[in-house]
Nucleic acid binder design. Structure first.
Length: 800
RNA sequence: GCGGGCGUGGCGGAAUUGGCAGACGCAUAAGAUUUAGGAUCUUACGCCGCAAGGUGUGCAGGUUCAAGUCCUGUCGCCCGCACCA
């Protein structure tokens, strides 16, 4: 058969679409499989080959599942709200709606030309008001349950673009768009109380099957620690200072305290502070620093001692100074710490610089040189003296603190509440009304969606407020509660919002009465297998797990976790080994590859190029090897002789069915394809195969190169689609051939390879081994002291 | 600093989990075929060596009949988080 890939691919893409071969059937009696890939952001640049690799993995699994008789849901959609589209709109004056629609059209075209088996009737678009109606609905539910709150926070602000930026968009203290310096600005911020779910987000990781490194990253992100809260009495003002520590066992070693520059104590007791001006100046200096400067540049410790207020060590009774320093953050714990310079490196550096006492309470190091953070015997610690077990010391101290009422056990998380707003146009409007009498009032559910108004000008306001603030007809409204004049919230939701529940909408994308029908949710959930990039395993996955758990709590979804299994693909690097980027000019456009080599070649190559989970550089010549493979497969149609089984190939076929089947499950696509290549080599060496064997071959090939496989299927005169034909089976007993090649070693060195009957006994194996010419020569004149026989594998003769 | 991972030919990468290291593919070389070829076919291809043979999975040790795989030490690289109290 001639391999005219362009004609073949067009033909089958059309046939699949017309017959709705990849349609997922709701509430079917069949076993279900829900495979999910991360939906793309439809940028103007179009897809690159990285998208193809990301989708090709579960594409193969989904196609295999269909052939195994599953009812498969393999959907796709578009995460289309966001900054690049809006910036493009600002630059060109074209409305983001129009830009988005064009980009989506382009992406759909690209995806369908690769022949992905998506169910195109379930496409979701997060910017569709019928979709974001439910994003807003979830927000209102969160609001109703007290999981939404407002607070002021310092934000990254670009004075040149007049825009508030996320940390990701202001890396290195520079604006991502115009490269000018970012300043810190105080801003009202909407927060979602994700920390209320921290414990469950952590502990429920035990119930899901994520790759170990993915789980670990989430554990680190949540960052649970246990320790104690301790209240230090203050001298000079009638109050106490509450701190969090993971090392309550070192309490006797506390020689000073440090509070964050934003700590409320500084305002509350201004008059008691004698060096107010100095403190204010330092705090102002810190406020100017960006998050980057304060955290990334771990340089010399700075700080100022607070004059007029001191603290008392609650266990030793000693009076100790309090400092203000920017190495303590307001955002973690209580914004105040007890400092134990002898046993903490940061406290040690600070104490050295400010000449503060360093008191050893754990033996084992040399505190004149550096902080000792290891274990050892407790000293100078009252009732803890002599203990050597850290856990026990901590437990005793906590018991003491609790008994005396000066502290208690506590848990802290690194994870912070989710800042949930952007001062931008192209996002979901936050459905809240600010009423001078009633305060924050939610938009009534029946008024959703709260749609984005049509705007001509998307440039953000001078003060960094949303472009929506300039639309009087949008801002001015009546309070839903009292009917009086009120103003709408003009911030929009961050890009993470729409992607936090999109996998639910695929289940019932057109439903206007609920985010999805409960029966359908019960049928399809959880997502059986979710694949995507490592860059999304913390934020996107944690955010969406949080929303899902919330929806579970209010009875909307039937499972506590959204994703049963999560894997990740590795990057495709440019042929220069660098990350693909426009500026390096090493980006590969998948459509160019499809035009020149065909979609099947592209699909096979992105999976064959290396371990699926690792990064691998693009190589056009390697890809040509995949094309050659498909050419040779097409030529197999010329080699068909009769039906049934070719005895010489039987074991190889059974072996290959087994290997390809299990490799796909483990995402070892490269070795699955290699196994097919090996089998092809054997078939060619043999010279012919039967029709049944070719059918088996193309069935195994179908998930990888479905167009060619379908064409050969038709060429063989088979009815229907190969896409829904049964997956081949194998017989374990037939995967083994009658004779095996056994390696024979003498003193661990290979001396010969001897053919032996499969599963032959030890005695026979030994005698066959020794009758080999080279082996006989190697043991001649020596005494065999030990004989090791591993069945079907190896014989080792130890001689002296 | 904390956490995760990796180190195998000229290149991408295999290795049934302790059992013939380098599967499969690329590149390269020689030959065949072709008007031509960035096509196709055959053969070779870790390193040293004409060969017999020796040697070889970052480096140094160890366990074992047997180590890429296990243990100890060491060097190097990548990714995530990061003054987290």
């Amino acid at each position: 058969m001639k391999y005219d890939f362009a004609a073949i691919e067009q033909k089958w893409q059309k046939k699949w679409e017309e017959a709705k071969v990849f349609h997922a059937e709701d509430l079917s009696d069949k076993k279900k499989f829900y495979g999910l890939v991360e939906f793309p952001y439809p940028s103007g640049a179009g897809m690159h080959v990285g998208h193809i690799k990301a989708y090709a993995g579960l594409e193969v699994v989904s196609r295999k599942r269909r052939m195994e008789g599953y009812n498969v849901l393999f959907p796709i959609g578009f995460d289309a709200f966001g900054l690049p589209t809006e910036n493009y709109a600002i630059k060109t004056g074209i409305h983001p709606r129009k830009v988005t629609d064009q980009n989506i059209k382009h992406f759909r075209e690209q995806l369908s030309r690769v022949g992905f088996s998506f169910d195109w009737d379930r496409v979701v678009d997060t910017t569709d008001e019928k979709y974001y109606k439910w994003t807003q609905w979830i927000f209102l539910k969160l609001f109703e349950k007290g999981l939404v709150f407002r607070d002021t926070a310092m934000v990254n602000y670009c004075p040149s673009c007049k825009v508030v930026l996320s940390n990701e968009d202001s890396q290195g203290g520079k604006c991502d768009i115009c490269k000018s310096d970012i300043i810190q600005k105080s801003k009202d911020v909407w927060y979602l109380r994700i920390t209320a779910y921290a414990e469950r987000l952590l502990s429920d990781l035990d119930t899901v099957d994520y790759l170990p490194n993915i789980k670990q990253q989430q554990v680190n992100w949540i960052g649970r620690s246990t320790g104690a809260f301790v209240n230090f009495p203050l001298c000079g003002v009638p109050d106490q200072l509450r701190i969090y520590t993971t090392r309550p066992d070192t309490l006797f070693g506390v020689t000073f305290m440090v509070i964050a520059p934003e700590h409320p104590l500084l305002q509350k007791y201004r008059s008691a502070i004698k060096n107010q001006a100095e403190i204010d100046a330092y705090a102002a200096e810190c406020a100017k620093k960006t998050e980057f400067e304060r955290t990334q540049l771990v340089k010399e410790k700075t700080g100022v001692r607070i004059e007029g207020i001191t603290a008392k060590n609650p266990v030793s009774g000693k009076e100790i100074p309090i400092y203000i320093a920017d190495y303590v953050m307001m955002g973690y714990g209580t914004g105040a710490i007890m400092a134990v310079p002898a046993h903490d490196e940061r406290d040690y550096a600070f104490a050295r610089k400010f000449g503060i006492d360093i008191v050893e309470v754990i033996r084992g190091g040399d505190i004149s040189k550096e902080a000792y953070t290891g274990d050892g015997e407790m000293v100078a610690s009252g009732f803890l003296n002599g203990l050597t077990n850290k856990k026990e010391s901590i437990a005793r101290m906590i018991a003491y603190l609790t008994e005396k009422g000066i502290g208690e056990e506590g848990v802290q998380y690194k994870m912070k509440d989710w800042a949930f707003n952007r001062q931008r146009y192209w996002g979901e409007p936050i459905p809240i009304v600010h009423c001078p009498h009633c305060g924050m009032v939610p938009v009534p559910y029946e008024e959703l969606p709260l749609t984005l108004p049509q705007v001509e000008n998307f440039v953000p306001g001078e003060g960094g407020e949303s472009p929506l603030a300039k639309i009087a007809s949008f801002v001015n409204c009546k309070c839903p509660r009292c009917g009086g004049d009120a103003k709408r919230e003009t911030d929009t939701m961050p890009q993470w919002a729409g992607s936090s529940w999109y996998f639910l909408r695929y289940i019932d994308p057109l439903n206007d009465d609920a985010l999805a029908d409960p029966a359908k949710l019960a049928y399809w959930l959880p997502v059986d297998w979710y694949n995507g990039g490592m860059e999304h395993v913390t934020r996107h996955m944690i955010y969406s797990r949080f929303w899902h758990k919330f929806l579970y709590d209010i009875g909307v979804v039937p499972t506590a976790e959204p994703y049963a299994k999560r894997t990740a693909q590795g990057l495709i690097l440019g042929s220069d080994g660098q990350k693909m980027s426009k500026s390096l000019g090493n980006v590969v456009d998948p459509l160019n590859v499809v035009d020149v080599y065909g979609a099947d070649t592209l699909r096979v190559y992105v999976l064959f190029m290396g371990d699926y989970g690792s990064a691998a550089p693009w190589s056009e010549s390697s890809m040509r090897g995949c094309r050659r493979f498909l050419d040779r497969v097409a030529a197999l149609t010329e080699k068909v002789r009769g039906e049934g089984v070719t005895p010489a190939l039987e074991a190889s076929f059974h072996k290959t069915v087994k290997k390809v089947s299990s490799d796909i499950e483990e995402m070892k696509f490269n070795t699955a394809i290699a196994a097919l290549m090996t089998l092809l080599n054997e078939i060619e060496a043999h010279g012919s195969l039967t029709k049944d064997e070719l059918l088996t071959f193309i069935s195994l090939l179908d998930p990888f190169a479905p167009h060619l496989a379908e064409e050969i299927h038709e060429e063989l005169g088979c009815e229907g689609f190969l896409a829904t034909a049964p997956w081949p089976t194998f017989d374990e007993a037939k995967t083994r051939s009658d004779t095996v090649e056994v390696a024979v070693q003498v003193n661990g060195k290979l001396r010969g390879v001897v053919p032996m009957p499969a599963d032959c006994g030890e005695a026979e194996a030994l005698s066959l081994a020794k009758s080999d010419e080279k082996v006989a020569a190697a043991i001649a004149g020596k005494t065999v002291v030990k004989e090791i026989v591993v069945k079907n594998k190896i014989v080792n003769l130890v001689v002296r």
